[in-house]
Each structure stands twice: as structure tokens, then as C-alpha cells.
């Protein structure tokens, strides 16, 4: 299955919280796996359940609201701050998200997301508020993200904004390439570099 992404048109889940840290996305006590799979069930674990009990979902948490679902998570600014745990990106991907939209991302989370073909889309504060307003008014509102042309559109209103992504990373995502494949391909250059006087 190709990991490549380009156009995603889907409903979204609006999470208004700011400074969502990776300890919230996946608490440390669930980092004990030795594979990349299965982290989705503990996504936002302590925001989702009372007393760590799956039989007691917290009613006011957005992921427990059946009206909201989709492949796009829309979150407040400074998403993914804190720990470097890639498990945060794995958990989001495993729970069915392909895109996270926010007005600001923490650096390590952004790299981890890109390395897992989870697209971080950074928008202005104003545009973020427009998305929140649209989806809260109508949970079936669709967002369209076009990676090749680098824009995000609120389908209901037609409002759109362009987003930045580095050219190299964009090529990787559009074609399903990993950084590691590239690095392995230049190993002779790396070996040569090691022998040079620096």
C-alpha cells in the first residue's frame, strides 16, 4: 500500500485546546510497546476517560462526541509540544487521522508527523477560528487539503488559505518516499565525509 498523500477531503474533529502536549496525546505509561502498532486506542487517554476506565467516557471531550469524526484533527496553537515521543504521531495515525491542522506546531512533533505521512497543516489564527466556527456549526462540514497545490479549503464557505511545506518533504509525501531511503542511497558520500579532515 502506498503511503503517498495528496488530496484529502474529509470531515474533521475540532479540538480547541492550545498547547496540546505529547503527554496528553499519549501518556507515558502507554509507551511500553516495542512495535509501532496499537497506540490509537490510548490516544488522548486521560482526556477521554474518567479514572482511566473505558466504561466511563468523559461526555464533554470532543472525541467522545459521535457528531464529530473524520480524518482531520483541527487543534489549538502549539500542538505537539513536549516530549519527542513518535508514539504521538503513531497514535494519531492509528486512530485514523491523516492530517492535523493547527496555527502552530512544535518542531519535533512536526518532523515525527511528516516521517509517518501524517500531514501537519499550519494555518493562520484567523483561518483556524473560521474552521472551528464552520465545523461547530455543522459537523458534516468538509475540509479539503491539497498538498500538491498547498492549500486548505473550507468547502461550505469556499474560504481557503495556502500553507507552507518544504519542497523536499512535499516530494517525499506526494511520492511515498522515506528520508531513510534517501540517506541509504548516499551512504558512499557519508563514508567519504567520515574520512575527511574537518
Amino acid at each position: 500500500m502506498s503511503k503517498a498523500i495528496n488530496i484529502i477531503k474529509n470531515t474533521c474533529v475540532p479540538l480547541r485546546n492550545e498547547n496540546v502536549d505529547t503527554d496528553q496525546i499519549i501518556p507515558a505509561r502507554f509507551l511500553k510497546g516495542t512495535s509501532r502498532d496499537g497506540f490509537g486506542k490510548n490516544l488522548f487517554r486521560d482526556w477521554r476517560y474518567e479514572n482511566n476506565d473505558e466504561a466511563q467516557p468523559k461526555k464533554d471531550f470532543i472525541l467522545n462526541n459521535p457528531s464529530f469524526h473524520g480524518k482531520i484533527l483541527v487543534a489549538g496553537k502549539n500542538f505537539g509540544c513536549g516530549s519527542s515521543r513518535e508514539h504521538a504521531a503513531w497514535a494519531l495515525k492509528d486512530a485514523g487521522f491523516d492530517v492535523v491542522v493547527s496555527s502552530f506546531f512544535a518542531d519535533i512533533f512536526k518532523s515525527n508527523a511528516l516521517n509517518n505521512f501524517l500531514l501537519p497543516v499550519q494555518v493562520s489564527d484567523t483561518f483556524l477560528q473560521k474552521i472551528f466556527a464552520a465545523v461547530e456549526a455543522d459537523p458534516t462540514s468538509l475540509l479539503e487539503i491539497n498538498l500538491a497545490d498547498q492549500y486548505i479549503r473550507i468547502m461550505a464557505t469556499g474560504e481557503h488559505e495556502s500553507f507552507e511545506i518544504n519542497h523536499y518533504k512535499k516530494t517525499c509525501l506526494l511520492n511515498g518516499y522515506d528520508d531513510i531511503d534517501f540517506l541509504l542511497s548516499i551512504k558512499p558520500d557519508i563514508e567519504k565525509f567520515e574520512t575527511q579532515e574537518r
Binding site: S84, H87, I108, N112, N115, D179, I180, L183, I190
Partner: peptide, 17 residues
Amino acid sequence: GIGTSEVEMVMATQCLL
């Protein structure tokens, strides 16, 4: 700090992008 995919890259090539 780096994520696990990057840990793998450094293990494989001693380099990062």
C-alpha cells in the same frame, strides 16, 4: 531530541536530514 524514525536513520547512516 529526535523521534524514533530518526533514531533508525542515525542507526542506519549516522546522518539526519
